[in-house]
């Protein structure tokens, strides 16, 4: 039976893996290659690198890093942040990434999903959705979660699926950084409406919340950052907890 995935998200700024709150007080988390090896040893099912720098230079430094990681760590690697064109997708894949994710670029130009899937295959196209509830309705936000695109989340993920997206990375802006748990209502709504895998993101703080993303939210994977970077929980510990409660994971 297919297992549920646990995916560490590494924020990258100018080629360094960093942590910080809202781009302030950025602190180096460690050597990217060592960190990737560590999470791989711990049982991470995939790695996501997210460039939080806005510059071309920052993105290209991240791709150098991904290239180094892909030579010693053999699990799927996704990259996101600043992917805007087919050329950007190509460069990321040539650097050793297996998948790319994009959010704003797809909202501005949904054809990017279709073109990316046609040229490189759906398996490498991850649509990232930053969702926020407004007037009892979820909307897809763009530009780092600052601007409401006006597009309803459910409408957007259905369209993206039909254009060839291979997976949905579903991030809750309301929950991001709160440790209140993944937005189960949002997850459930999206997993009920598409047949491609959905990765839960935003809000993980406690083990039971990760469990609920799978058991109640029907997520296929859970993305997490601070709780594992701060070593509040180890990936092995998370997976044991899930397994004890009947969630199928790779241990």
């Amino acid at each position: 039976m297919l297992t549920k995935r646990i995916i560490p998200c590494l924020d990258v700024f100018e080629g360094r893996v960093v942590k910080g709150i809202h781009f302030k007080n950025l602190v180096d988390v460690g050597d990217p290659v060592e960190l990737a090896k560590f999470y791989n040893d711990e049982g991470a099912d995939e790695l996501v690198f997210l460039d939080i720098g806005a510059s071309y230079r920052s993105k290209s430094l991240m791709l150098d890093m991904v290239n180094k990681v892909s030579q010693v760590v053999f699990i799927p690697i996704s990259v996101g942040g600043g992917i805007r064109t087919v050329e950007d997708i190509r460069n990321a894949l040539l650097s050793g990434a297996d998948k790319v994710s994009f959010c704003t670029a797809a909202l501005m130009n949904p054809e990017l999903i279709r073109e990316g899937a046609r040229i490189f295959g759906s398996q490498c196209i991850v649509l990232s959705v930053d969702a926020k509830k407004e007037d009892n309705e979820y909307f897809a936000y763009k530009l780092g979660g600052r601007v409401n695109s006006g597009m309803k989340v459910l409408q957007w993920v259905k369209l993206a699926e039909s254009l060839g997206a291979g997976e949905i990375l579903l991030n809750s802006i309301d929950r991001d950084g709160t440790k209140l748990g993944y937005d189960i209502e949002l997850l459930r709504a999206v997993t009920d409406c598409v047949s491609i895998p959905v990765i839960a993101s935003g809000g993980a703080g406690e083990l039971y919340q990760i469990y609920e993303a799978f058991s109640l939210g029907n997520a296929d994977a859970a993305l997490m950052a601070s709780i594992i970077h701060r070593k509040e929980f180890g990936i092995k510990e998370i997976k044991r907890y899930l397994k004890d409660r009947g969630i199928n994971v790779r241990l």
């Binding site: 039976m1 297919l2 297992t3 549920k4 995935r5 099912d45 759906s122 398996q123 291979g166 997976e167 047949s195 491609i196 895998p197 296929d220 994977a221 790779r250």
Partner: peptide, 11 residues
């Protein structure tokens, strides 16, 4: 089947 593609770690 319900979810295609088959993506992830399986036995």
């Amino acid at each position: 089947v319900k979810k295609v593609p088959h993506i992830g770690w399986n036995l």
